[in-house]
Design a binder for these strands. Sequence first.
RNA 1: GCCCCUGUAGUCUAGCCAGGUAAGGACACCGCCCUUUCAAGGCGGCAGCACGGGUUCAAGUCCCGUCGGGGGCGCCA
Length: 474
Amino acid sequence: MVKVRFAPSPTGHLHVGGARTALFNWLFARKNDGKFVLRIEDTDVERSSKEMSFEILNALNWLKLDWDEGPVYQSRRLRIYQRMAERLIKEGKAYYCYCTREDIEERKKRAEEQGKSWKYDRRCLNLKEDEIERFKKEGRPRAVRFIIPEGKTEFHDLVLGDISVDNEEIEDFVLLKSDGYPTYHLSVVVDDHLLGITHVIRGADHIANTPKQILLYKAFGWNPPLFAHLPLILGPDRKKLSKRHGETSLLAFRDRGYLSLAMFNFLAQLSWSPGEDKEFYEINELVERFDLNKVRHSNPVFDFEKLSWLNARMISRLPVERIWDELVPFLQKEGILEDLEKNMDWAIKMLSIVKERTRNLVELASTARRYVRRDFNYNEDAIRKYWKDGVKEGLKRLKSVFEKLEVFDASTTEKALRELAEELGLKAARLIHPLRIALLGERVSPGIFDVLEILGKEETLARMERALKELPDV
RNA sequence: GCCCCUGUAGUCUAGCCAGGUAAGGACACCGCCCUUUCAAGGCGGCAGCACGGGUUCAAGUCCCGUCGGGGGCGCCA
């Protein structure tokens, strides 16, 4: 059975690159009826934190990536790694290294000054008995290094194809740090093996690590899993996407009003395409179509514009019911959640027309506020443009026409307004624009007659009254 | 510097593995239509196979080189 994992390190927020890796693993697992395991790689005591672990789980939940096993915390499995390292030492496949960072730094510097490329010089592999005894007596801290055998290491990457590296290029890397914690290479190999991981799907920044890990699998006598490396996401300047390109943590996108499904679609379609002329899919449609084989090899640029467009289109097309849960926090922030909950039928009607022209949930909530509360400010730009040429007179007439209407909906108000315009010898627009300002304080809105129907007669008249009172005579 | 990966418009991509009909779609941009505004929508436009060799009747597709881009070279993961 297929079993994959996502193994973030809780040293920072889950950024979009990590999220994309998690997403591809999840898609692959679901597509193949496999298992998706979550493992927290918290073996860097200095930089890992409980809060970040929690936040990463949160972020995955928001994207709707559920896991079947875990979270497995590596910090609780230290003894396992230590035992495995000891085993390699006993078998002569690894050795203790007493070199300090300073020693190595110096030797490395010297080598580089001579124009030689540096690789750990195996000093501690060739230590004499008495030297070892002396170090032991001194209680000198020691790490464990892996002996890289001679030869060539090759593997077939499910995305990139055959990759081959000469072992000459690889140094005797550290397995166990002198503080007893495993390095990434040890823990990742041990855990992937023990958890029965069949496919390792991760970022291309791990390509160079793969041969090291394969060598470790061989040393242990284990079968390596299959590997698939995903192209790295770049910023608009073609550099690896990072904070320099703005806030790139996944949850920051949520907080800026992006729909989880929009983010899901966008990330799924970076480096991969279902191959149809279609921009957005339901999650199950992506699962059905997913194919590691069709993942591109080159690095994609994260296009904020396109994501924003996708988000806007999705908000517009999805029914209010499907975005409601995600919208709630934003409505709360605007202080209008309770008002809306008191009259959900109305809220749904209102949001349905408002959401068609908002790009994100922040905007949707703040625009919605104008429909709920009458205390908005009038947009100065709008006033400058449309509040002129005796608008007040026209609006007063319109108000008294509206007052007489018994049925107050889009079609009756439209008929009434157009008739009045004709009577006054004006273009309907001459009434519509000022009316929009009076009702919402903005120069743009959904169709004005839909707005009238949503607001209703009483509220419409009250807003017209306020505008006539507060806006200048012109 | 060394090693590895990679290259279809400004961007995301289809086509490449199994060579063959004007390189298809989307974002952005421009124009027109619709229209009460702004979006959306419809129609149209701009723009691409990095370059150079080779194989072949035929190359975006296969091979080699150059150049460009990215990643790695930690007792980080």
